[in-house]
Write a protein that binds this DNA or RNA. Sequence first.
RNA 1: GCGGCGGUAGUCUAGCCUGGUUAGGACGCGAGCCUUCCAAGCUCAUAACCCGGGUUCGAAUCCCGGCCGCCGCACCA
Length: 503
Amino acid sequence: MVSREVRDKLTQITLRRNIIFPSADIYPPMGGIFDLGPVGKGVRDKIVRIWKKLFIERNGYFEVDTSLILPEIAVKASGHIDHFSDPVTTCKSCGAKFRADQLLEENKIETAGTTIEDINRLLHHSDIKCPNCGNKGFTEVAFFNLMFKTNIGPVEGTPGYLRPETAQGIFMAFPRMFKSYGKLPMAMGQVGRSFRNEISPRQGVVRLREFNQMELEYFFDPNDQSFPRFRDMAGKKVAVLTYEEQEKSKVQSKAEQRRNEAKPVVLTCQELLDKKIAPNEITAYFIGLTFEFYEACGIPFESMRFRQLSPSERAHYSGGTFDLEVQTSFGWLETVSLAYRTDYDLKSHETASGSNITVVTPDGRRIIPHVVEPSFGLDRLLWAVLEHSYRGKDEAHDWEWLNLPTALSPYDVAVFPLMKKDGLAEKAQDISSLLRNKGFTVIYDESGSIGKRYARADEIGMKWAVTVDYDTLKDETVTLRDRNTAKQTRIKINEISSIVSKF
RNA sequence: GCGGCGGUAGUCUAGCCUGGUUAGGACGCGAGCCUUCCAAGCUCAUAACCCGGGUUCGAAUCCCGGCCGCCGCACCA
């Protein structure tokens, strides 16, 4: 586990360097909403770039960008009106808040399919006592929906909602996309923002009201759950915490503790299939690909595991769900959900819209495709990446620094003149624009001493720093400093671009 | 939402208990001098009492409410 101290130190850096900071904070603060400064945005963009490479481009999948605003009928169909709002009631004696349906269920009163009026009646005609203070008497049950509601059109226009996940846009675009490109299996992904009006956001960027997702929907014929070229992934090693393993740990207390004490097993993707842990090649493939992605983002193998969810934990329609959890200062943190959603979503939209969403297979069957969905929480991943990259002082650094993978460096290269005078600054600026014109992102810094500038660059995780000194003026060479070792090598100016882009 | 604790420049913090300060310091940032490679030094500058109300001649300080944060509980389809 990453220590609490690391979280505090990192939080100071992210504020001091404006990597992540509270939104609109010239006004009274809002919880659960943050801005990214240039460095945070730079690192996050690079995480997205790697994701796209692996989850979209590698297998020729489609990337789309669907709307943030959804009509009410769509969120009704997806189940977010009914399942995404909690019936909340308050104890009149002690003020504790409860979910009314859970109170009833705990007292063996069936609530499935009941309306809010039913729940109210059942609750107020029962002898249920407050689990907190033991007294009877609850307030009127009210729904609290986690979606942001708005109006489409003028004041009293059609009700609309900010999307609570990016997935629904993909499902609704599926029929149209399939008609022009369609052949199963087919996959579409998108990177975008989603909104959940959390009751009490906590823990920095871990629970946000406005957050970023990277989701891929993989559509396939349920009669063929193989994955094309699965063999490419078959040997990939992953860590998995099976449901059985979680059950075996006999710690009686909280489910969370039970999970934490259970040991993940390291298996290849092929073994996931052989041992029947993964339901199909598709799931096994994406488990492997997710590990590859996280390792590329600098998360150590030992600090992550796919946890198989128990039947009671996963959504009712799910054919199997695995969460990727990463060790952070908050404990094991869920950052990816890999869900087998069956045909639930497409079927719901077909029913609600009346559109025909079936597709015809090559052998003439008319089916609704099934879906496997790897869904990534980008903000949580960004935070986990930062925590794992944090380094304190060491032999090569008399300051804190971020050991980000080269591919996640917020800018490609830093350029410093050894000093401002004698034309060094001008030469360094020339080199900066040369590199910028070649498409590199460059930070140029001439203030303070050279050591201070190295420290500043290290603190935001810059991998490379080029320094212009007096030899540069004589022979067109510069020194290239590697962040991790602080070692410098002298290279020609025209070699910079090949070395820096090599990674 | 409940309970406990907290909120002072960009960051860290002193002051609060025991009301009266030009609200102090450090780091950072900016300008300048100096400086031939890892947060050197000097000068100057920038910048803060979360919001609202109350008590008082006077509130960063005491009281109440709100907002936000941390910890615990609850919640997290």
